[in-house]
Design a protein around this nucleic acid. Structure first.
Length: 192
DNA sequence: TCTTCGATTGTCT
DNA sequence: GACAATCGAAGAA
């Protein structure tokens, strides 16, 4: 299985978000692989995108978004949840792709032990759920996703045809003004 | 199945 | 001091 290269990430985040659908997100917990296929993403692009964390310029929290693509941007929100993003574009061009949902493929027993008693269909169907299932926390912020020694990385997996991918407005950005609020920068595919 | 609502704290104004 | 790229329990239907 091949790991996605830096070139994959150093592009328009819209293209990265679309192409990430069908890829496999892999985490290592206690030396074992825990993985799932990405089926929902959202793109955030630059300081002009008022839904993006970089809208107010560079801060301590969003600093890794200003680096080169192919790095993990993990942040904490709502007082209890971690979110996992892939940094996109080249250095000094803040952009990222939020991974919102995955379909578990490997390490099912580990996920079950973490997520019990929740039903399997709801283990990884939200951005904070997948980070909990894969053990992703702020410690992973800034991790390189292009190295086979990284605790989190993304592998090439399925090729999803365009007719199975839908684009819709992004979720959870109710206070963001138009036109950003309605930009169809969320990508989903039904991989059931 | 759908809707409402409480939880809980880092970050920026 | 306000709000957040949310979750999951509980209650209604």
């Amino acid at each position: 299985m091949s790991i996605l290269s830096r070139d994959f990430y150093v592009r328009d985040p819209l293209a990265v978000a679309r192409d990430l659908i069908g890829k496999q997100l892999v985490s290592t917990i206690h030396g074992k692989r825990v993985a799932g296929i990405i089926n929902e993403t959202e793109a955030y692009d630059g300081e002009q995108d008022l839904a993006c964390h970089a809208r107010s310029g560079k801060t301590q929290r969003n600093a890794v978004m200003y680096g080169t693509g192919g790095v993990a941007y993990v942040y904490f929100t709502y007082g209890m949840h971690w979110m996992f993003n892939c940094v996109a574009r080249e250095k000094d061009h803040p952009a990222a792709v939020l991974v919102r949902a995955i379909k578990p493929t490997e390490g099912i027993d580990i996920i079950r032990s973490i997520r019990e008693p929740i039903k399997p269909s709801h283990w990884c169907d939200g951005p904070a759920k997948l980070t909990r299932s894969l053990g992703i926390t702020g410690e992973h912020n800034g991790s390189d996703l292009c190295s086979d020694t990284s605790p989190i990385l993304i592998e090439d997996k399925l090729k999803i045809p365009d007719n199975l991918v839908q684009a819709t407005p992004r979720i959870g950005i109710n206070y963001t003004p138009e036109p950003w609020k309605s930009m169809p920068w969320r990508f989903i595919a039904d991989l059931s």
